[in-house]
């Protein structure tokens, strides 16, 4: 695809999310930078948009090759690539926040200036998050198997999903642990400090 403003290939596909309707932009590197500078000019309603945060994120010294490599990384749970996230502006599943943690951190800093949640926490400590991720992955695998007409495989996967769903339901019932609001029970310490310089 060509850049919307010149003959160069479009390497940045931006979905602008502020304002009324999502707007698709296909730009070469140079015009993407230019777009960012405009967006920074204060004309954008609503502060830092996701698109400008993404563009800003990529301009911090990433070469086209590095970016291409990064773009191909795909979440093992939902299958979304970083490229797809970059062009659509939406993540594919909760696991993406773990899998793309490194890529997302500077983006979160740009948008929120912070990287640690300090607000409300669920009263019940979430349990079995690995099982949940496995469920998302298996459902996707089953759909792919059906699409490829591998029905035997699909039916195996279906059984596996059912089994997991059942055991998970029992686990969740037994392990639901009520904790005081605002405290939670962190399993690991936050290594990263709140604010980036």
């Amino acid at each position: 695809m060509k850049c919307q403003h010149c003959e160069k290939p479009a390497t940045f596909h931006i979905t602008e999310l502020t304002g009324g309707h999502p707007q698709e932009l296909h730009l070469c590197e140079e015009h993407a930078r230019q777009y960012l500078t405009q967006a920074d000019g204060g004309e954008e309603p609503g502060g830092v948009s996701l698109a400008s945060a993404l563009t800003q994120h990529m301009k911090v010294g990433q070469t086209a090759e590095e970016l291409a490599r990064l773009d191909q990384r795909a979440c093992p749970v939902c299958g979304i690539t970083f490229y797809e996230f970059r062009s659509q502006g939406r993540l594919g599943c909760p696991h993406d926040y773990y899998f793309f943690a490194e890529e997302l951190e500077p983006l979160l800093v740009t948008i929120h200036s912070e990287t640690a949640h300090v607000g409300k926490r669920p009263r019940r400590a979430p349990t079995g998050s690995e099982t949940r991720m496995e469920l998302i992955r298996l459902r996707r695998a089953m759909k792919e198997a059906v699409e490829k007409e591998q029905y035997e495989r699909a039916s195996e996967l279906r059984d596996e999903i059912r089994q997991l769903e059942d055991s998970h339901r029992h686990d969740a019932g037994a392990a639901a642990e009520v904790v005081e609001e605002g405290e939670g029970s962190p399993k690991k310490k936050n290594k990263r400090s709140g604010r980036k310089p």
Binding site: L91, P94, Y97, H117
Partner: peptide
């Protein structure tokens, strides 16, 4: 059970 991350809080489709 909501999607919740120890460090990032409630997880949403858009960051």
């Amino acid at each position: 059970t909501y999607a919740f991350h120890e460090q990032l809080g409630y997880l949403t489709a858009c960051p």
